[in-house]
Design a protein around this nucleic acid. Structure first.
Lengths: 144, 144
DNA sequence: GGTACGTCTGAACAACCGATCAGATATAGA
DNA sequence: TCTATATCTGATCGGTTGTTCAGACGTACC
């Protein structure tokens, strides 16, 4: 809409449209401090992945159970096995969970330390400060 | 937390449909450890709110800038003022940001310590480990 | 080989969500 | 008062996303 250009290119060339600023200096400083667009999108992707109740229950189950197969995850989270499989594929694509196949079973587990921390932090937010996992010490593996 | 078990029967009430489980005991245990549905949804809402690039840039700007008005936030994040206003309304509804109006300006700032921690944790995830805010003396933990 | 089982996949549909536009509200200043 | 500014709001639209259904794949066991 605004066709003017001719900006003091220092700050940026992308948002020349926005001329109304109260504190240009602060805007420039904060702007410089933000991560690049790709990084922001990538981080938003992670948060977004944790932002759906089904996937979140799935991940919290893995945080608690350590390593679980698809059918047990479905039973635990009250989701259909198909939904679980679709969700796990997404999470796997983003390296948030990893799979280990044994026979015809597929065992999933958390595969990202940062996500684990985000989940724990989130749980403390809801008052659920659980510290001891059901099956494994903390990283999960193990078998029973 | 309670020591005994003896309850294998009431696990099923809701999901009697899912009969295929490999490890019913673990399923029941993990299931018990999960937060209630409302808590899960509430937590998912928070993650979801952080899961959109625009809102995330907005929040990271506030994390960095401390307190900013709508027009400066729009300039900083390269969003339209309308989009910023809509986004801030959502964030305000969830008590993630708070507003303080002075004259015809509206100054927003982060209003949730947990979210602040999630943002910082997320930034370290992208390699951006920034610690000192641009303008505000107090930022890390505090209420206002 | 053939069957049963666990998991994975693609397509289709409905619900949700963010961006935009146009206009409303509210305050400051003349 | 009237005007300009800063922010907020409702409605609409196009793209995204989760769920379901149906079937495919691969493995274990007879």
């Amino acid at each position: 809409m605004n066709g003017d250009k001719s900006v003091d290119s220092e700050v940026s060339a992308i948002d020349a449209c926005d001329l109304k600023m109260v504190d240009p200096g602060k805007v420039a400083a904060v702007r410089r401090s933000l991560p690049g667009p790709e990084d922001v999108v990538e981080l938003a992707d992670v948060f977004s992945l944790l932002g759906e109740p089904g996937r979140l229950r799935l991940l919290m189950s893995l945080l608690e159970g350590g390593e679980m197969c698809v059918c047990d995850l479905a039973a635990t989270t009250s989701m259909s096995e198909s939904s679980v499989s679709h969700a796990l594929r997404l999470l796997r694509a983003h390296r948030i969970v990893s799979v280990s196949r044994r026979g015809r079973m597929a065992y999933y587990s958390l595969d990202d330390g940062h996500v684990r921390m985000l989940l724990n932090l989130g749980l403390t937010h809801t008052g659920h400060s659980r510290t001891t996992p059901v099956a494994s010490p903390d990283t999960a593996v193990q078998g029973r």
